[in-house]
Design a protein around this nucleic acid. Sequence first.
RNA 1: CGGGGUGUGGCGCAGUUGGUAGCGCGUCUGGUUUGGGACCAGAAGGCCGCAGGUUCGAACCCUGUCACCCCGACCA
Length: 408
Amino acid sequence: MLYSKLFGKTSKTVSADEESINAQYLIRGGFINKQMAGIYNYLPLGLRVLTKIQNIIREEMLAADANEILMPSLTQEESYKTTGRDNMDVLFRSEGHGGTKYVLNPTHEEVVTPLVQRYVFSYQDLPLGVFQIQNKYRNEARAKSGILRGREFNMKDLYSFHTDEASLNEYYEVMKKVYHKIYDRLGLGELTILTYASGGAFSRYSHEFQTLCAVGEDTIFTCEKCKIGINKEIISEQTTCPECGNVDLVEKNGIEVGNIFKLRTKFSSAFNFKYSDAAGQEQLVEMGCYGMGPSRIMGTLVEVFHDDNGIVWPESVAPFKYHLIALGKEDETFEMAQKLYKTMTANGIEVLFDDRRELTAGAKFADADLLGLPVRMIISKKTLEKQSVEIKKRNSDQSELEPIENYL
RNA sequence: CGGGGUGUGGCGCAGUUGGUAGCGCGUCUGGUUUGGGACCAGAAGGCCGCAGGUUCGAACCCUGUCACCCCGACCA
């Protein structure tokens, strides 16, 4: 990508209202633009990051034999009456012609359950996992913290369907591993721990995945030994580590980057979703749900990976790998940079080439730091004399010269 | 939803006791610059969130309303 063709500009300033780091850097860097509280436009750079996060999640879901589908955002209110959730205060409502009442889905149990019910009749069809990556709508009392808590946000939601609790439990444990693998690939593995949380009406606990971070809005009591957390919301009933019994728990803050639930038969019973077992008897389907928010993860990554000059993206989600900068006004420098850009791009390497010739070095460096691409590649009269390019990693203060032909 | 704060060129902000709006950044022209956010000269760009009211006169005072931010409550 040529910087000169990139839609979205960097800015030295951001509104004093934006206190959260993720909002400040993402807006200043031209990754996102705020339309209103909790509602954002994703500009090209931000969309590239979001898409990379989604693709990592998608790959791991598909590798676990889950089926990707896409469900609608709008659903008739009737479905929520069926499950008794039509009184949820986060529901955005709308009305269509003839007075039809719609809901913008805050989650999709009310959609996916009758959908799967239409195709699954036998124990031979189970277990089954279906997921989607789609925007959710929640009328939060207060949107806050940039893209960490929005009223419209991106979500991967997986739903699993089983013949019995044993199958659900097995799938649930597999998903814990899949989730950890995803956080590893996102660069959040070390900081993200499994956390016991409120299970709602249908099981004792649910499990959250909490990325430990000072600005996290959840309070977590962690067992250092097991790398396990307990959400403060259940700490009155659970004061020891559920894995090892450790009572020496350490209080930390976390950002909830995933949440998995055993729904059991709450929704299958509401919709009367049954299958025929091997004996020909009808049984209620057991269900689980598994959420993970790519947009919130994007904000979390900025909160975790930044310094005073800007974002420091992990390579797996950076919008581009290389930030190529040509310094000086000599044509030969610029032409060599163009050649590098074309060659590397043709070789499938992701390069953002800052081809703005009129800008000074400092301005380009400042933008490079703000955008946070993993590797800065500089070509100038000085490096050209040595037939080299200067390579500097965003997470390091050191730079080194490398032969230019390594990249041609 | 309770408490607090803020709405002024595209962005960030200032605006005194009420007298008809200014700075920085950005943008445009011309020239000089180029290894850490260059400089000079010139220019464009504003129903002062919106609606009422007070006043000879309102960005400023009053009422209402909308939006945004922070703290709290809430949060499958």
